[in-house]
Each structure stands twice: as structure tokens, then as C-alpha cells.
């Protein structure tokens, strides 16, 4: 009986240990910005679901294209209907890992540089990307930040020639996540 309780306690603590290594957020913030002399494009998505596994360094993001908010209604409409075709392809996602996860001490407060690589899927097209960022550990909260550039053309996003010169060829993507233990 006693050994049973002990083994049960052991399994429970193990389970807790495992579950404590995964952090998630449902309200991550990803935004992009691109400018030409004629047009400034900026859109924010504050409903990004993301998880980070502290032991393996696995990192995942998924977001809804329709959750990107633009200041101008017409821009948002074109973005959804013509460029990203969000009715057909409602999501974009990233699956990858922190390559230098061994150098990040999730148990000790501090800011750590992170190198991330993985597959980014936008508009149904998957590309391998790498990016640098930071991971900040504070108590049981983890914040992760990164900035990288993407080229819409790489993801088969067709911009009509009439507006081609108004829209930046490259967009800067900013990722700001605040995770809590799962």
C-alpha cells in the first residue's frame, strides 16, 4: 500500500515536472510593417497562439489571417480577399525550435539571446527561416521577442502591378510573446 502511494506520488511529481516545462499563450502579438514613399502598411494580430517547450526548445505559432487589424478598412479587405485569400487559407503557422536552447536557463531570471529556425507557412507556402531574438525569464513568466523580414513574393502572394510600387517588397515582422506555464 505504502509503495503504491509512493509510486503514485512519484508519477504525479513527474507529470508535474513534464507539464511545467511547457509554456503557452493565446494572446501573442505579431505585427508587420512595410513602407514605400507612397504607402505605409502596418497590421497587428493580438490573438496568436504559441507554445514553447523549455526542455526541447520546440517552438510553435499559429494565427488567423483575419485577426490582422489594419487602420484602413479597404487595406484590410484587400489583404484578406486578394492577397492572402483568408477564406481559402485562414491560418499561418510556424514550427521550429530554439537552436541554442541549452544556453537558456529557464529557471534563472535573465535575458538570453536566442537563435530560432524552422518552417514558416503563409498562404499555404512553407519556407525554412532563421531568426534571432531574445528570451526573457522572470519568475514563472517567459517573454520572447524577435524581428525578421519576409518577402511576400516568396509565399506566392500576388500583388497586382498597378499597386506593386506602392507596397513594400519586404515586410518587417515583429513577434512579441508573453508566455505563462501551461
Amino acid at each position: 500500500m505504502k509503495s503504491k502511494i509512493i509510486s503514485l506520488l512519484f508519477v504525479m511529481s513527474l507529470f508535474q515536472l513534464v507539464s511545467a516545462q511547457k509554456y503557452i499563450t493565446k494572446s501573442g502579438h505579431i505585427w508587420f510593417y512595410g513602407e514605400t514613399p507612397m504607402e505605409e502598411i502596418e497590421a497587428h494580430n493580438r490573438q496568436v497562439v504559441s507554445s514553447i517547450d523549455c526542455s526541447t526548445g520546440e517552438l510553435a505559432f499559429v494565427l488567423l489571417i483575419k485577426s490582422f487589424e489594419f487602420k484602413r478598412a479597404l487595406m484590410q479587405e484587400h489583404f484578406n480577399e486578394n492577397y492572402l485569400e483568408s477564406d481559402k487559407i485562414p491560418k499561418a503557422n510556424f514550427k521550429g525550435k530554439i537552436d541554442n536552447v541549452s544556453k537558456v536557463d529557464f529557471k534563472k531570471d535573465g535575458t538570453y539571446p536566442a537563435e530560432v529556425s524552422g518552417d514558416l507557412t503563409i498562404h499555404g507556402v512553407t519556407k525554412h527561416i532563421t531568426s534571432k531574438g531574445t528570451i526573457e525569464v522572470k519568475g514563472n513568466k517567459i517573454t520572447a521577442n524577435s524581428k525578421f523580414m519576409i518577402v511576400p513574393k516568396d509565399y506566392d502572394i500576388k500583388i497586382p502591378s498597378i499597386v506593386e510600387n506602392k507596397i513594400a517588397k519586404e515586410m518587417q515582422v515583429t513577434v512579441e510573446m508573453a508566455y505563462a506555464p501551461n
Partner: peptide, 13 residues
């Protein structure tokens, strides 16, 4: 609200 889709939850904006 406007339904934007489903991730872990259904999202209305």
C-alpha cells in the same frame, strides 16, 4: 462579433 476562425478557441473580433 465577426467570426475570424478557430485556433484553440473560436475567435470573434
Amino acid at each position: 462579433g465577426i467570426c475570424s476562425g478557430y485556433l484553440m478557441d473560436v475567435i470573434l473580433n
